[in-house]
Structures are given as C-alpha cells and as structure tokens.
Amino acid sequence: MKYKNILQIDDDYDDCNFFLEALEEVSAAAYTAIHNPVHALQKLINNEIRPDLIFLDINMPFMNGMEVLTEIKKREVIKNIPIIIFSTSIPLDIKTKIRDLGAIDFYTKPNDFKVLKNLLKNLT
C-alpha cells in the first residue's frame, strides 16, 4: 500500500517531528500533524483535510485516541480512512478493542530512528 497523504493525530510535538523526519527519508507522502484531537476530528468531519491514512495516538488530552477512533468510524464521510494506532503504550486490554473499533493495526512508538524508518517504509 502506498499512501499519498498521511495525518498524524498526536499531542506530542517531539514525537511528530521524529515521525516526520523518518517519513521524509522513506516516503514522498504529504504529512500533516494535528496536536489537538478535537481540532483534528473537526477538520476531518468538515472535509478540511482528506488523509488516506491516519496515525492516531491513544493518550491525549481533551479526547483520547479511542474516542477519536470511535467518532471517526461513526461518520459516513470519513469512516473508511484507514487508522493505525501509534502510541507510546498500548495496554493489552485495549488491543482487541482497537481492532473491534475499526483500526487496521497498532504499533508502539519506537525510540530508535532506524526502527521507525523501517516501520514507515513497510507501511507507506
């Protein structure tokens, strides 16, 4: 699968910058980061952004990733956008729930740049 427009919803600016640096080395995809999940959801619903893949963090203020995922999957206009949960920690008890809610996969954020590049190379 090759994606042309990637959205990352993550409140951690450093994690997003790290992600972008790795992505730029392995893909020509356009990249957008939105740090406030409520704003990201609004932009998606209002068709202000149209990604073909979303990387979604779980642990965020205002609205957690599970809530964002649930809201996206309720909306006809955006429910078919593939979503990958990409978080520092993914508790075992919610891994099944993530799939049930409609995420296509989940990954724990790697701290190693080479590992992240390889992961993104395989996904994008």
Rank of each mutant, 00 (worst) to 15 (best):
E25G: 13
E25W: 13
S27M: 02
A28S: 15
A29D: 04
T32F: 12
T32S: 13
T32N: 10
T32C: 05
A33N: 14
I34K: 09
H35A: 11
P37E: 14
V38W: 03
V38F: 05
V38A: 02
V38S: 06
V38N: 02
H39F: 14
H39V: 10
H39T: 12
Q42V: 07
Q42P: 11
K43S: 10
K43Q: 13
I45A: 09
I45S: 09
I45Q: 14
N47K: 09
N47A: 11
I49H: 07
I49M: 05
P51G: 04
P51Y: 05
P51N: 07
L56V: 01
L56D: 02
D57E: 10
D57F: 12
D57Y: 06
D57T: 07
N59C: 09
N59Y: 10
M60S: 03
M60P: 03
P61H: 08
P61F: 06
P61S: 09
F62V: 10
M63L: 15
M63E: 07
M63V: 01
N64G: 00
N64F: 02
G65Q: 02
G65W: 02
L69A: 04
T70H: 14
E71L: 11
K74G: 03
R75A: 10
N80Y: 15
N80L: 15
N80M: 14
I83M: 01
I85W: 01
I85F: 05
F86K: 01
S87Y: 06
T88N: 09
S89M: 06
I90E: 06
L92I: 14
L92E: 13
D93A: 13
I94Y: 05
T96F: 15
T96S: 11
T96C: 10
K97E: 10
K97C: 05
I98F: 02
I98D: 01
I98K: 03
I98Y: 00
R99P: 06
R99C: 11
R99A: 09
R99T: 07
D100T: 12
D100M: 13
L101C: 12
G102P: 02
G102N: 01
G102V: 01
A103T: 00
I104K: 01
F106I: 00
T108V: 15
K109R: 06
P110D: 07
P110A: 08
N111H: 12
